[in-house]
Design a protein around this nucleic acid. Structure first.
Lengths: 203, 203
DNA sequence: GTCTATAGTGGGATAGAC
DNA sequence: GTCTATCCCACTATAGAC
């Protein structure tokens, strides 16, 4: 019942203050944006004084940075794992879509914050996150390219173009998905697989 | 009367200070985010003192509000116009995709700001913008639904689901499109039409 | 590990001259 | 329509007691 979101209520109760801090930060960053979220609000949500935060973190930017790293590691791991046991190229594409959508929506606030607040990081840290993101996108592209080479995906566009179109189709979901809405992450993954692979025209 | 209907290409050179102010604001809002952009920066970019801004606007939020209204009016008008002369349901879907992509990318910063900074508006103004957005989305949905009714689009998903999938595919483009990149807005519209209508699987 | 208190900076907006 | 000068507030982060 209270088990919505990626991390169960039970885990949250046992979480260290540092972990609760990160959970609260990601919630507020997604709700209001990084720049508009104040350390005062984060402290209030946790029921501690502002100064106490700085025992756990060095700066507000630390929170954003760790959120971005975790987000990309999580989705990269989830997708790698989902396709690792499969050999059929089209099966791998479908498993990738499913894992991407389910992982992204299970940890929706974290992924959304990573995808939209990159610009708020310092140059150095932003470059690090962009590299992690590029590595993940390379994985996606290679799975699509293998399917093209196997002759089961359209070759009228480059693998890069197929990757851009696929990530377009999947990622925008974070802006309108609601955990208690009509469509589950699995429903959405199914819809996107149909649309991406089969198209919607019926003549 | 003298101001009426000034939408020409030479508009920028003759733009009033109020118009230049809005142009500069949208550039900065998209680059750094609304909350992270200061009125000091906007004034500096225009080469005026901070206080001078307040002759033209009542508050910083005014700028965001007017940007959002313009953005939605522009894309709604562009798409309405593009489909108005067409009767074939599939032609209308294709023209809608083309007009949405070209309009969105021609005015990229404005649309991107509207789509990502809605949460920074006051409750009242946000509700107004959400309604404008809903009206545009209804137009998109009705075009898709007519094509379903005509038997030329897949009926395995609701018109609402087809709409969500289509806007996903198109809108995320604002995050990676670069005006001087390899792909023109027309190229991208073509790619998205192929992917959305025909799918990418080839068995 | 959390507290009280505050330093130090930068923010949006206004008053009134020209 | 733009200027100089300034108010007042909110922000991040730190110092040092407990």
């Amino acid at each position: 019942m209270a088990d919505n979101g990626a991390e169960s209520g039970a885990r949250r109760d046992r979480a260290t203050t540092a972990e609760k801090l990160k959970d609260e930060a990601v919630r507020l960053f997604w709700e209001k944006g990084y720049a508009a979220t104040t350390t005062r609000e984060i402290a209030e949500s946790l029921g501690v004084q502002r100064a106490s935060l700085y025992y756990h973190i060095k700066s507000k930017e630390d929170l954003l940075y760790f959120i971005c790293v975790e987000s990309l590691n999580n989705i990269h791991t989830a997708v790698s794992k989902a396709i690792s046991a499969l050999t059929d190229p089209l099966d791998r594409v479908e498993a990738m879509i499913e894992a991407h959508v389910v992982s992204m929506l299970a940890d929706r606030e974290k992924h959304a914050t990573m995808l939209t607040e990159l610009r708020s990081l310092s140059d150095l840290r932003r470059a690090e996150i962009v590299q992690l993101r590029d590595e993940y996108e390379s994985l996606v592209r290679s799975v699509l390219e293998e399917a093209q080479d196997a002759g089961v995906l359209w070759k009228g566009a480059s693998a890069k173009e197929l990757e851009l179109a696929l990530l377009n189709l999947l990622n925008w979901t974070i802006f309108w998905y609601r955990p208690n809405g009509e469509l589950s992450p699995e429903d959405l993954a199914g819809l996107f697989k149909e649309v991406y692979l089969g198209g919607v025209a019926r003549t």
